[in-house]
Design a protein around this nucleic acid. Structure first.
Length: 688
RNA sequence: GGGCCGGUAGCUCAGUUGGUUAGAGCAGGGGACUCAUAAUCCCUUGGUCGCGGGUUCGAGUCCUGCCCGGCCUACCA
C-alpha cells in the first residue's frame, strides 16, 4: 500500500464560547478519521485553530474591560483543555490571530487582487458614535421600514414580524444595542470579491470527483449556482463583502488602510497558518501540504458553514494557486432526546461539564455508532447512550478480555496460534470492509461490523469454558489455547476500534505488552508472550452520573443572572432586548381592547395562520389573521376572551384583510402564548 | 410554496444491479451458565416494509400521487 499524504481540518471553533457536545460531534468525527488514517500508515496531520476575529470578540472584550488578546488567550486554553479531555488530538492547534495567518492572508489577498476579483463599493452603514464603531446588523434594532408593518424593536437585517428584508440604514428609529444611542448613517468603502467570475470553475469543481456529498451539490445548485440546463437557468453569485472598517478586531488590509479583513476571510486561511506552525516544528515544507497534487486536503465542517467552504474557499484557493480540497465532509447538528439542545432542559452540555461526570470514551463510541456519511442531524438519546455503552462496549467487547485474561496470566499466550475454527481469519478478512466504512465516514457501519466480531467471539469462549478447564491440570494446554484465542480476538477488535477508543487501545497494549500501532496488526495473532494482570478498562454508565450532568447543565443557566424565587430565565430578554423608552402619549396611540373570539377557522393554505372573527361587543367585529395555527386549535378558541389591538391599520394579506392583532408572546410556531383576561373583563373594554 | 433527506419489529437501524419464506442489535418472554463489570450463552415472541395507484413473471427496492417527520429556503404573521 502506498502511503497517502493527508491534511485534515476541523472547523475552527469561535473563541467566544465554550466547547459543547454539539461541537464535539465534529471534533470526534474528525479525530476518529485522522486516527484511522494514521493507524493505516498514512502520513496524516490534523490541523485546527481558534477563530479569534470579528465584532463579537471585540464587543465582549470591551464589555469586560480588557483586551481582545486576553479574551482569546483564555478561550484557547479552555478549548485545548476540553479537546484533550476528549482525546481529540490535533497535530497543531493554532490561532487565526497569529503572524503566520496575517502573512498568508496578505499573500492570498495579493493573488486575489492580481486575479482581478476585488472591487470597491461604497455602502451605507450605521455608525455608533459613542462606541466609535460601525454596527453589524445584529447590533442594531429599530422599527421595521415596511409601512404596513412598522413593528418595533426589530433586528437590523430583517423584520421578525413581516419578514421583509432591508439594510440597517433603512430601519426607522434605529438604536445601537451596544450603547443604546441612536446611530448615524455613514458611508464607508468596502471591498468585495466578485465570486461570479469563478462561476465556471465552481460549477465544475463542485460536481466533480466526489468533492462533495450529493445532497450538498444539490443544495448549492438550487440556491447559489443554478444550472444552465434547468428551466430556472444559471444564477449569479453575489459579491462577497470581505472588508470591515475600523475599529474591528482582525488584520488591517495592507493596501486599504483603515479596513480590516472580515473574519470569514481570515478564518479558513487559519487552516494554512496552523499548518505553517506544524511544519516549522516538524521540519516539513508548507508547499508539500498546500501546493502539491500529492496531498489530499479534507475539511470536516457542519452544514451551517457549507457556503463558505464549498464556494468561497475553493474560489480563494483556486485564485491563489493553492491545492483544492479533495473532499469537504459535512455533518448535521446534534439534538438531544430528539430536541434542540437547550439550556432550560439541561441538554446544552458543555464539554467541561460532561467530563466531570462521564468517561469521554462513552461519547466517542456513541457518536461513532450514530454517525454516517450524510448530513442528517444526529440525535443523542440518553437512554440509548447508556444502553449502547453497557451492552456493546462493556458487555460484549471488554468482557472478552475480562473473562479470559485472568486464566492466562500464569501461562502467557501459547507458543503457536491454535485452531479457532477460522474465527481470527474471519476477523482479519473483515478488515477491508471495516476500513472502507471508516474511510467513507460510515462509522455506524464500521461499529456494526466490528460488533459482529464480538458476537462471534463470546459464544466461542462460552463453549470452550476455560473456567471449567482450569480445574483440570491435564487440560492446562487447552486452557492456554482458549485464552490465547479469546485475547487475540479481543485484540483484533480493539485494533479496529482504536480510532474510536484510543484509551482502551492503549490499555490493551499494556495488557499484552505490545502497543497497538497499525491496522495490519489485526491480521496477525500474538503468540508466546506474557499476559499482564487485567485492569478495568471502562465502567458501566451510571444513570446517576448522566442525571447529574444534566442537572448541572441546568443549574448554570439559572444561577448566572441574579435569580428570584421563580428562577425565571434571562433568555427571553436577551433574545429580544427592551425597546426604546416611550411616553404615555405613545402608549395611548395603541388601542387595546378585550375581544371575544366569535369564529375561528383554519386557513388550509397557510402554514401559520388562523382566521378569527373578534367581537368587541354589540355588532362591532374585526377579522384578524393570527399566526397561531401551530399553537392553538380553532375549536379551543371559540368563545374565549383575548386582548387585541383594535386600531391597527388593516393589512392586506394573501388570504384576506387582517384588521387587527391578537396579543401573544413567545418565539412563534408552537410556542405562542395568548394573553388571558381575568374574570369580569368584557368585550369592548379598553386595556389601559 | 420550492429543494433535499427520511418513514422497514416496541426502540436504533441493515436490506447490494428488482429475485426464494424481509434481517441484525437492543428491549420483551423462556431456559442455561456462573470465568467475567447483575456481564455471557441458547431458544423465542414480534413486521399491512407510511398509504393508494402503476410497471413487471416477480416490488421494501423502479415510476406516480398523497400522508407524516426532519433539515434548508422562501412567503406570510
Amino acid at each position: 500500500m502506498t502511503q497517502r499524504r493527508i491534511l485534515v481540518t476541523a472547523a475552527l471553533p469561535y473563541a467566544n464560547g465554550p466547547i459543547h457536545l454539539g461541537h464535539l460531534v465534529e471534533y470526534i468525527q474528525t479525530d476518529i478519521w485522522v486516527r484511522f488514517q494514521k493507524l493505516r500508515g498514512n502520513h496524516c496531520i490534523f490541523i485546527c485553530a481558534d477563530d479569534t476575529h470579528g465584532t463579537a470578540i471585540m464587543i465582549r472584550a470591551r464589555q469586560e474591560g480588557r483586551s481582545e488578546e486576553s479574551v482569546i488567550a483564555e478561550s484557547k486554553i479552555a478549548h485545548e483543555r476540553d479537546f484533550a479531555g476528549f482525546d481529540v488530538a490535533f497535530d497543531n492547534f493554532g490561532s487565526t490571530n497569529s503572524p503566520e495567518n496575517e502573512k498568508l492572508c496578505g499573500e492570498m489577498w495579493q493573488s486575489i487582487r492580481a486575479a482581478g476579483l476585488v472591487k470597491e463599493k461604497d455602502i451605507e452603514q450605521l455608525f455608533d458614535v459613542q462606541e466609535g464603531t460601525f454596527l453589524a446588523d445584529r447590533f442594531v434594532r429599530g422599527t421595521c421600514p415596511n409601512a404596513a408593518c412598522g413593528a418595533k424593536n426589530q433586528p437590523g437585517d430583517n423584520c421578525s414580524k413581516c419578514g421583509s428584508t432591508y439594510t440597517p440604514a433603512e430601519l426607522i428609529d434605529p438604536i445601537s444595542t451596544l450603547s443604546g444611542t441612536t446611530p448615524e448613517i455613514r458611508k464607508a468603502k468596502h471591498l468585495f470579491i466578485e465570486l461570479e467570475q469563478l462561476h465556471d470553475f465552481l460549477d465544475e469543481w463542485t460536481k466533480s470527483d466526489d468533492h462533495l456529498q450529493s445532497e450538498v451539490l444539490n443544495y448549492l445548485k438550487g440556491h447559489f449556482l443554478g444550472d444552465a440546463n434547468s428551466p430556472e437557468g444559471r444564477k449569479t453569485l453575489r459579491d462577497w463583502d470581505i472588508s470591515r472598517p475600523a475599529p474591528y478586531f482582525g488584520f488591517e488590509i495592507p493596501d486599504s488602510p483603515g479596513n480590516y479583513w472580515y473574519v470569514w476571510f481570515d478564518a479558513p486561511i487559519g487552516y494554512m497558518a496552523s499548518t505553517v506552525q506544524w511544519c516549522e516544528r516538524n521540519g516539513e515544507q508548507f508547499d508539500d501540504w498546500w501546493r502539491s497534487d500529492d496531498t489530499e486536503i479534507h475539511h470536516f465542517i457542519g452544514k451551517d458553514i457549507t457556503y463558505f467552504h464549498t464556494l468561497f474557499w475553493p474560489g480563494m484557493l483556486k485564485s491563489a494557486g493553492f491545492s483544492l480540497p479533495k473532499k469537504v465532509h459535512i455533518h448535521g447538528f446534534l439534538t438531544v432526546n430528539g430536541e434542540k439542545m437547550s439550556k432550560s432542559t439541561g441538554t446544552f452540555v458543555k464539554a467541561e461539564t460532561y467530563l466531570k461526570h462521564l468517561d469521554p470514551s462513552f461519547l466517542r463510541y456513541y457518536y461513532a455508532s450514530k454517525l454516517g456519511s450524510r448530513l442528517d442531524d444526529i440525535d443523542m438519546n440518553l437512554d440509548e447512550f447508556a444502553a449502547k455503552i453497557d451492552s456493546d462496549l462493556v458487555g460484549k467487547v471488554v468482557n472478552l478480555a475480562s473473562r479470559c485474561a485472568k486464566f492466562a496470566v500464569a501461562s502467557g499466550l501459547s507458543a503457536e496460534y491454535p485452531d479457532d475454527g477460522g474465527l481470527f481469519a474471519q476477523g482479519a478478512a473483515a478488515g477491508d470492509e471495516i476500513a472502507a466504512a471508516y474511510e467513507n465516514c460510515d462509522y455506524n457501519r464500521a461499529m456494526r461490523l466490528i460488533l459482529e466480531l464480538a458476537d462471534r467471539a463470546n459464544p466461542y469462549i462460552e463453549n470452550a469454558a476455560p473456567w471449567t478447564l482450569k480445574n483440570d491440570p491435564d487440560k492446562a494446554q487447552q486452557l492456554q489455547d482458549i485464552c490465547t484465542i479469546g485475547l487475540n480476538l479481543f485484540r483484533q477488535i480493539i485494533v479496529y476500534l482504536a480510532p474510536v477508543l484510543p484509551r482502551i487501545s492503549e490499555q490493551t497494549g499494556e495488557l499484552l505488552g505490545r502497543p497497538i500501532e497499525s491496522w495490519d496488526e489485526a491480521k496477525t495473532p500474538l503468540v508466546g508472550i506474557p499476559v499482564n494482570k487485567f485492569k478495568h478498562m471502562i465502567k458501566r454508565v451510571d444513570r446517576k452520573d448522566l442525571d447529574a450532568m444534566i442537572d448541572e447543565s441546568k443549574d448554570e443557566e439559572v444561577t448566572a443572572p441574579p435569580t428570584s424565587q421563580y428562577n425565571d430565565s434571562a433568555e427571553p430578554l436577551q433574545t429580544e432586548p427592551l425597546a426604546e423608552q416611550c411616553t404615555i402619549d405613545d402608549f395611548v396611540k395603541v388601542d387595546l381592547r378585550i375581544a371575544r373570539v366569535l369564529t375561528a377557522d383554519d386557513v388550509p393554505e397557510a402554514n401559520k395562520l388562523l382566521k378569527l372573527t373578534l367581537g368587541l361587543g354589540g355588532d362591532e367585529t374585526r377579522t384578524v389573521f393570527a399566526g397561531i395555527k401551530e399553537a392553538y386549535k380553532p375549536d379551543d378558541l371559540i368563545g374565549r376572551l383575548v386582548v387585541c389591538c383594535a386600531n391597527l391599520a388593516p393589512r392586506k394579506m394573501k388570504f384576506g384583510v387582517s384588521e387587527g392583532m391578537i396579543l401573544a408572546s413567545g418565539p412563534g410556531k408552537a410556542d405562542v402564548f395568548m394573553l388571558r383576561v381575568d374574570e369580569g373583563g368584557k368585550p369592548g373594554q379598553r386595556v389601559h
